[in-house]
Design a protein around this nucleic acid. Structure first.
Lengths: 223, 223
DNA sequence: GCACGGCGTAACCGGTTTGTCACCGACCGG
DNA sequence: CCGGTCGGTGACAAACCGGTTACGCCGTGC
């Protein structure tokens, strides 16, 4: 599930990005209006988080442009008390809004609700490099090969790696994301899970080319 | 277009009522939970505005009860900062919410957005693929076969699957939509209901061709 | 009061998934 | 050279899951 986050405040953008990617969404970022439209066209995200105040084009203009091409849900970030903005945003087809400041938890709940409402919950496949994930079917496809059936844990692991494709993901973080709790000692589980996943997605599991071991974690190769 | 407004604060109720009726909606009012359910049953409104804090039954309980009978959009009125409430409301199937205090203009914009959204969704027919549902008669017809009588729960389950025909519907979501209560360990119920429904609609219930088990849920086959 | 349908609950079965253990080779500092 | 750590691997058992059968409760209609 791809989410485009457009905000000129780099800190806020990163906070939102971190929150969403922790939850398993693939995050695409843009720092101004034109960039947002560009990334939107390139990536066709499933949901857009838009700050109203941005250089180049305002969130309003971006929202309007997006609405002409897509019905993907749009969440606007507004400043508390600017009701005019709010009404205007909703009139332009925004689906929800969030008053700044907001907590990551709230953001996540709203994003989930929005996706559920849009029925988009798990329809569009998640992809990076040669790996495509179908969350609905619990399958992965490598390049143009046949889809492989994954288990719940394998899916979650691959989803995490995919959400951070090209970058090493720390083992501890994987443990937390895949199993939910569990403290550091349980590397064995991760070891096994990686092994099982490699059996399914690697052409030669003994010499991985996709899911590589990196210092302190694993990474998914993207090119 | 009928809107049910349930709030124990008479002033607020009147304000909302006035705003909506000015905008051309037919407004029905209720001052507590039980009254809200009563008016809901009598009037079958197209949208419900629900305060969370009400005597008799809370907005949560009312929302839950309404969701068991209807998919009409529900807007909850919440107190700012009560995030637990918010998350719970959305989990119970509320479609939107508004933080108090809010301006009439905001309310109107949100109500319009909600109805517009629901209007799009309500265009979904009660048939998909070879399955046709008759909500009045409590029957389903498969292809050109004879109509089969369904029970209330079976109907609701099939309705949910039909609304997302061709796509997997998550078990948790089915649980919430069909029974209202939160997921928990009640998979057994769903298991049974699916089984019973398959007995009725599948030519060979042991080898389903319509209602398939998918990872994490069930799906209705459309082609 | 009785039969019946609807529905919640429990128990069982077979297949899959996941947790655990034991072992291997590679690497590393002493 | 030696013990220790680390990632990878195979094997196995425990837990889980979906389908199924069976049973019991309860409200409805006769």
């Amino acid at each position: 599930m791809k989410v485009l986050v457009a905000d000129d405040d780099a800190d806020l953008r990163d906070l939102i990005g971190f929150t969403l990617s922790q939850a398993g969404y693939l995050v695409i970022k843009a720092g101004d209006g034109p960039a947002a439209l560009k990334r939107f066209a390139e990536e066709t995200p499933d949901l857009i988080v838009l700050d109203i105040n941005m250089p180049g084009l305002t969130g309003f203009q971006v929202c309007e442009a997006i609405r002409q091409r897509s019905r993907a849900p749009v969440m606007m970030l507004t400043v508390r008390g600017e009701e005019e903005d709010l009404v205007r945003a909703l009139d332009l087809g925004a689906d929800d809004y969030l008053n700044k400041p907001f907590s990551p938890r709230t953001l996540l709940a709203r994003v989930k609700a929005l996706l559920r409402r849009a029925g988009m919950e798990s329809s569009a496949p998640l992809a990076a490099g040669r790996v495509t994930l179908d969350l609905e079917e619990y399958t992965a496809r490598i390049g143009s090969g046949a889809p492989v059936r994954l288990t719940k844990l394998e899916l979650r692991l691959l989803q995490m790696l995919l959400a951070n494709a090209g970058h090493t993901v720390n083992s501890d973080r994987l443990l937390v994301q895949v199993w939910g709790h569990r403290s550091g000692g349980d590397r064995q589980l991760l070891k096994q899970l990686v092994h099982r996943l490699r059996q399914k997605i690697e052409a030669n599991p003994a010499a991985p080319t996709l899911l590589l071991t990196a210092a302190a974690g694993y990474k998914l190769i993207v090119d």
